[in-house]
Design a protein around this nucleic acid. Sequence first.
DNA 1: CCTCAACTACCAGAATCCGCACGTTTCCAC
DNA 2: GTGGAAACGTGCGGATTCTGGTAGTTGAGG
Lengths: 225, 225
Amino acid sequence: MRILVVEDEEALAEAIARGLRREGMAVDVATDGTTGSEKASVTRYDVVLLDRDLPGVSGDDICRDIVNSGALTRVLMLTASGSVTDRVDGLSLGADDYLAKPFAFPELVARVRALGRRATPATPPLLAAGDLRLDPAKRVVTRKGEPIELTRKEFGVLEVLLCAGGSVVSSEELLERVWDENADPFTTTVRVTVMTLRKKLGEPGVIDTVVGSGYRVAEPVRQVE
Amino acid sequence: MRILVVEDEEALAEAIARGLRREGMAVDVATDGTTGSEKASVTRYDVVLLDRDLPGVSGDDICRDIVNSGALTRVLMLTASGSVTDRVDGLSLGADDYLAKPFAFPELVARVRALGRRATPATPPLLAAGDLRLDPAKRVVTRKGEPIELTRKEFGVLEVLLCAGGSVVSSEELLERVWDENADPFTTTVRVTVMTLRKKLGEPGVIDTVVGSGYRVAEPVRQVE
DNA sequence: CCTCAACTACCAGAATCCGCACGTTTCCAC
DNA sequence: GTGGAAACGTGCGGATTCTGGTAGTTGAGG
């Protein structure tokens, strides 16, 4: 497993590196944000251990870069502050996990391992199609920068459609994924929700109907900041 | 996003479920390990929230089952004990994340969301023959880059023929694979559908007739991406 | 008690499907 | 080759299914 440690405290950085090497991992070290960013863009690391409080380029920026690059690299954020809001912020930036200093070393190893095991690429936290933007963490949808108020179900439907990346999603699957197990299989509520959703999203239409199959987003779906 | 909460303390389970629902997720609840295991094996959840200390079937066992099933489902382990060894154990069992009780709710939400983002299924390959392209997921067919609108049956027939890779497919087999079990065996609808399909695909002809045997695609079939 | 998301019921219009009738091609026996 | 039968292609109209849309009801949460 290929690891990058970005940490400005040199002693700590080396200690972590030594410990992880003992666990059989290949560890590189960067002691400032700039070289960390460079190394991350050159080498395909499995996991990047990222100190959030870096001088120069901040850990948040590096995290964003890595996530946006679409690489398979996982980010484990390290921070001195262990407050809950900080954690939430870190995760919504696209970090895959979060660990507060001081931490126990076995826990660090376990989390790095857990991240390395994950094969599927990390999805950046913002979905976009055309001039439409959806932020799953903030639960905000905008079109041409204008915010659009959606109900929970409407948001859920749009999120599933965008996550599908333009593939057709049947109303059965929408029901399955947005509603819970008590949903009546014969309900027409999906259709109604799609309709109100379309009305709120406005022109030109974002959601295509594929008769007999389901719905899909018309514009190509991108993953941005 | 489809979530399962397995937690024996009913009050806590419902509190979690309510909170996650407010975030727009579709949440099912199981208050013991057995039903939890059953539900997890029936429904394709994005994330399973798993209490480790369950009466009956333990959380560890359920976690193992889910991981072994090869499903895309992610597991977030919940536990009363916050000791480091426990955390390490949980993660090495295949859980994707770990949270110690008591936890702050925003953090739970952030972690669930981070896990749910990763559950994106693999994209099936594109089928191509000559200048014809078929995307099974997006349900899109193009010729020379120009999109062609097909009905469900037409698309199904073309898909089966392309999947056959140029081999002859009898109209009986087409009927069997594209239509449902109630299809009249003496129907002429396959012939009609093949006709409209040919008309839409245009010249030069893509589908050959093998008199007495069935149909096949003329050009060699490739898989591209 | 009020508000609003969520849902059901229902209708109208459109797309799709499919049987039927008939024309055309292929194949084989002679 | 030639005649005929079987298999295949094709246009049409009705039946069916599917979808968009409206209005009103229910129920949870504040």
